[in-house]
């Protein structure tokens, strides 16, 4: 890690020449080709592109869920997939350094809102009582009052807020969100983006968001385009009010 950089500019995600293919021979599909990407602390980066261009695969590779076929990756200053990494190391990284937010909330249906968040903390080794208190504090931070409600009893927006709270429960430095605003209306989508921006700023986290939602493009610090498994380019989106 480059210690000379200010804390809020540290690279949280660094990818060099990352490629991922599925299948062999004629059935081979190149999902990611020679990806080079850096996301720094405090940055909220959007990832867009047509369906099947590799956005979710890229998120899964960064999230240590899918192993790349080749390339080099460093998360929060720690090299990953360098041959010395075990499956349990990847699990530890997912638990402590990465927070996932999905298109659907994917909360555990048999746990209450508080328990869903506390479970992530307990898995990281935090005692149950403390985890419960911290989970309630997090829900309070998100203005959530239905702490004992089950996911099926929450609205889509509320469930997504609980999912975001779970994603940041262990104060991860990397937050990966796969179309988190897709099922929400524009008001709730804006609220979710507000939350992600606030988390990026408060926790110095790198936030990478896959999205098709043009209404939130202006909320990103950078917007990266993808096509056919490659990064096509990036732009700094202008606020709609400033658009020509």
């Amino acid at each position: 890690m480059d210690e000379s950089l200010p804390f809020d500019r540290l690279p949280r995600v660094e990818l060099r020449a990352i490629s991922k293919h599925f299948g062999r021979g004629e059935a081979r599909v190149d999902a990611l080709v020679d990806i080079k990407l850096t996301v720094r602390a405090g940055e909220v980066v959007g990832l867009r592109g047509p369906s099947g261009c590799g956005k979710s695969t890229l998120l899964n590779v960064i999230g240590c869920v899918t192993e790349p076929s080749s390339g080099w990756m460093q998360l929060d200053g720690e090299p990953v997939y360098d041959g010395r990494f075990l499956r349990s190391d990847l699990r530890r990284l997912r638990l402590t350094k990465i927070g996932f937010i999905f298109q659907t909330h994917n909360l555990l249906p048999f746990l209450t809102a508080t328990e869903n968040i506390a479970e992530a903390m307990e898995l990281a080794g935090i005692r149950r009582h403390e985890a419960r208190e911290r989970a309630e504090a997090l829900l309070d931070y998100f203005d959530m009052r239905q702490m004992r409600a089950y996911p099926s009893e929450l609205s889509g927006g509320m469930a997504q807020r609980v999912a975001i709270a779970r994603a940041i429960a262990n104060s991860p430095h990397i937050i990966l969100a796969d179309e988190p605003t897709a099922p929400l209306d524009s008001v709730r989508a804006g609220a979710v983006m507000d939350l992600l921006t606030r988390i990026a700023a408060d926790q110095h986290a790198a936030v990478l968001v896959v999205t098709h939602d043009e209404s939130i493009f202006h909320r990103f610090d950078r917007l990266i385009g993808m096509r056919d498994g490659r990064i096509e380019g990036e732009q700094v989106p202008a606020h709609p009010a400033l658009a020509p």
Partner: peptide, 16 residues
């Protein structure tokens, strides 16, 4: 299976 996949995503060890 979906809950199990979620648990894997958030880093739950296999033993859990």
């Amino acid at each position: 299976l979906r809950s199990i996949a979620t648990l894997k995503f958030i880093g739950a060890p296999d033993r859990v």
